[in-house]
């Protein structure tokens, strides 16, 4: 079995002391895999990513990265450790150029290292290179997502957290982004992805975790879930737990 690079151990977390969103959540993600996190709206999927990225401090339980406890570590420190996060929605600074967006992505790097890292990203994404001096907001939705991922890769993360990358993208572009993530995972980067576009995302993922009301309701290999005749029922109002 692949080793667990990310672990949540009975994590309780929320946005205020009276509001518990993650309720003893226990889950893990394995090295070099795409772990897909799915579940109904408000289940706490984004909250899992935010907690993992140190934007939310767990009230109890333990979050581990490569076996080490990271509860309460700030995002900057986690970036340095090798975790990158692409939040939901638009993450670029639309009024800045593509190059300036990349430079901001490398703000935690030593200044001298930045040009080489940007070159590394541009070599991987020729389309970004073509648009390097354009304003970021003038790029297509797909290019913008690519740039967001590219910018996250600037720090050579070992774990990439990505929240609903397919939002606002045409089916073809969704495929492109998924192919990109698959390629990253195959090259060794662990991907933890939240995605509503379940059927497509499952095709590219190794494992699927279903979150319900802040708890893990289901943990299955992606291919198995994809061919489960209950899949439609599960994600069209039904409850995952009943099928588990």
């Amino acid at each position: 079995m692949a080793d667990k690079i990310i672990e949540f151990d009975k994590v309780i977390a929320g946005y205020s002391p009276s509001l518990t969103i993650l309720n003893e959540t226990t889950l893990d993600a394995r090295r070099g895999e795409i772990t897909l996190l799915i579940g109904p709206n408000g289940a706490g999927k984004s909250t899992v990513l935010k907690t993992l990225f140190g934007m939310l401090v767990p009230r109890s339980g333990e979050v581990r990265f490569e076996g080490k406890r990271i509860n309460g570590k700030p995002p900057r420190a986690l970036l340095a450790d090798g975790i990158a996060f692409v939040p939901q929605g638009r993450n670029l600074f639309g009024s800045l150029s593509v190059r300036h967006n990349l430079e901001l992505g490398g703000i935690t790097l030593p200044r001298g290292e930045l040009p080489a890292r940007i070159e590394e990203v541009l070599a991987r994404f020729p389309r970004i290179r073509e648009r390097i001096d354009n304003q970021a907001s003038t790029m297509s939705g797909g290019e913008q997502k690519q740039l967001e991922v590219g910018r996250a890769l600037l720090l050579r993360p070992r774990v990439l957290l990505i929240d609903e990358p397919s939002i606002g993208l045409s089916p073809k572009l969704v495929q492109e982004v998924m192919t990109l993530l698959r390629g990253l995972a195959d090259a060794g980067t662990t991907v933890l992805m939240v995605e509503q576009n379940v059927r497509t995302a499952l095709k590219y993922s190794n494992r699927a975790l279903v979150l319900e009301m802040g708890r893990l309701a289901l943990d299955r290999p992606a291919s198995e879930l994809l061919h489960d005749p209950d899949l439609n029922r599960l994600f069209l109002g039904g409850h995952a737990r009943t099928a588990a």
Partner: peptide, 23 residues
């Protein structure tokens, strides 16, 4: 400078800034 542009980032959206590791 990239340093100064971080301010644009902060003003635009603190969440985006945090996800890039801007302190």
């Amino acid at each position: 400078s990239p340093w100064g542009r971080a301010f644009a980032a902060l003003r635009d959206n603190p969440m985006r800034a945090t996800s890039l590791g801007i302190n």
